[in-house]
């Protein structure tokens, strides 16, 4: 298995790709982030639209519901930069998951993140769904009730909880929600298995890893946990992602 090094940033949004990605990647690399993941989100509401459209125009080719992963070129001067692909699934019911898992594009992603938007989806994520990262939408309050038991269930299965700091810089409502969620993780699960990622949309939002560690303290983590959040836990996510992938392949053949 390939080794992953340096600091981790698992949430570089796909908006950055069209918008001067080279510059952003270089900045991240200079700061010491040697493993980054490009995030692509699929939203349930958008999928439903495509289904209804499909019914109207039956003969039109049915596209894959999962977009194909963005293939980022190796950037000059940062050869050691490892770029992964991450898929975030935002969902309210589990029906959509089955369709997504069957898609051939699904297996091309290194990391899968779940973003449940309802109590039912949250239960499903905790018990059945093989995700690597558990994330949330910073612009709204969570629609589900966190329980200590379910938190530990996710921890046992090696799922990591994501906190992003990019939206917290942009907007004060998002900042409020992010800090509230971070403190919720603190009170329910003693902030175990937390990763901090950027969620950046432009280069002004990139922050130094040491700033991020310091920010971790404000999110209710201890000194060690804050450091783990961008270093060791990031490595664990990668390992978890690749072992799940291998297991799926092994099952297929």
């Amino acid at each position: 298995m390939e080794s992953v090094k340096g600091y981790f940033d698992y949430n570089v949004t796909d908006k950055c790709i069209s918008n001067n990605f080279e510059n952003i990647a270089k900045q991240l690399y200079d700061f010491g982030y040697h493993t980054i993941a490009i995030n692509q989100t699929i939203d349930e509401s958008l999928l439903e639209e495509s289904i209804s459209e499909g019914k109207k125009k039956k003969k039109i080719e049915r596209q894959d519901i999962v977009p194909s992963p963005i293939d980022a070129k190796i950037i000059k001067g940062c050869d050691k930069l490892k770029i992964l692909n991450r898929l975030t699934i935002s969902f309210t019911t589990q029906d959509i998951i089955n369709r997504i898992i069957k898609s051939p594009n699904y297996r091309k992603y290194h990391i899968i993140a779940a973003q449940p938007e309802s109590q039912q989806a949250f239960q499903f994520t905790c018990t059945n769904f093989e995700a690597d990262i558990f994330t949330f939408n910073p612009s709204t309050k969570p629609n589900y009730k966190m329980q200590r038991k379910l938190y530990y269930l996710l921890v046992e299965r090696g799922v990591h909880f994501e906190i992003m700091y990019g939206p917290a810089i942009e907007d004060s409502t998002k900042r409020k929600n992010i800090i509230a969620t971070a403190h919720m993780y603190h009170s329910f699960g003693k902030s175990r298995n937390i990763i901090i990622s950027s969620g950046i949309t432009n280069s002004f939002l990139i922050r130094n890893p040491y700033d991020v560690i310091n920010l971790g303290l404000l999110f209710g983590l201890s000194d060690g946990q804050a450091k783990d959040a961008i270093q060791n836990n990031g490595r664990n996510v990668y390992m978890h992602g690749s072992t799940v992938l291998e297991f799926v392949c092994w099952k297929l053949y």
Partner: peptide, 12 residues
């Protein structure tokens, strides 16, 4: 120090 640096980080 932590609060000070935190607010520098969150200045956008």
């Amino acid at each position: 120090y932590v609060k000070f640096r935190g607010s520098l980080t969150l200045a956008g």
